[in-house]
Design a protein around this nucleic acid. Structure first.
Length: 178
DNA sequence: GGTGCGATTGCA
DNA sequence: GCAATCGCACCA
């Protein structure tokens, strides 16, 4: 258990707050051989509450989205388009469905992994990690180097045009400068 | 039990 | 611009 692993209290806050605070943090993934992949989170999206039409939780609890209804600190991993995995961080209190989609990270060598499907491929994340705790286990987030307000840009979420007015809400958070 | 489609990506 | 590819949400 790494001492710099972000604690449960980090995740059990409102989704928009957690989303903004995830920027600059270090996504960590331990592989079977014991090596650890790391990347600095530079783009995330919040999906917040039962009224958010863009969220998987909009139509209530289902087999797929059940982890979104748990207390923050879990991974929610699902398959989209039959071929790409998406990695989310569950946030907030139990009963309030919310999660943050991880969209892009900067690797230690400076290269950028951009896109939720590319991110899960790079970090070898699939549905085997769905529902796993970020507080223990092979997937977690460390404190890293938080980002100043002036370096944060907000924008509408990607790929949710079906969500009506919710599609234009600025729920995407991007590191615009280092 | 059947059907339509997606919080994407890569290639033409 | 569009095909790939399948779990699952939803309806019957």
């Amino acid at each position: 258990m790494s001492p710099s692993r972000l604690p449960a209290s980090f995740y059990r806050r409102p989704a928009l707050e957690v989303a903004r605070d995830l920027l600059g943090r270090t996504l960590c993934r331990e592989l079977a051989d014991g090596s650890v992949l790391r990347g600095r989170l530079v783009e995330v999206e919040a999906y917040d509450g039962p009224a958010d039409r863009a969220s998987h939780a909009f139509r209530g609890l289902t087999k797929r989205n059940r982890w979104m209804f748990e207390a923050g600190g879990l991974a929610y991993v699902y398959l989209v388009y039959g071929m790409h995995h998406c990695l989310n961080v569950v946030t907030g209190e139990a009963g309030h469905p919310a999660a943050i989609l991880l969209r892009a990270a900067q690797l230690p060598d400076g290269s950028l992994v951009s896109g939720p499907g590319r991110l899960t491929r790079a970090f070898q994340v699939d549905r085997g990690l769905d529902g796993s705790s970020l507080l223990s286990g092979s997937l977690w987030i460390e404190a890293g180097r938080p980002v100043a307000d002036r370096a944060v840009r907000r924008a509408p979420r990607i790929g949710v045009d079906y969500a009506g007015a919710w599609a234009s809400r600025p729920y995407r958070f991007i590191v615009s400068r280092s």
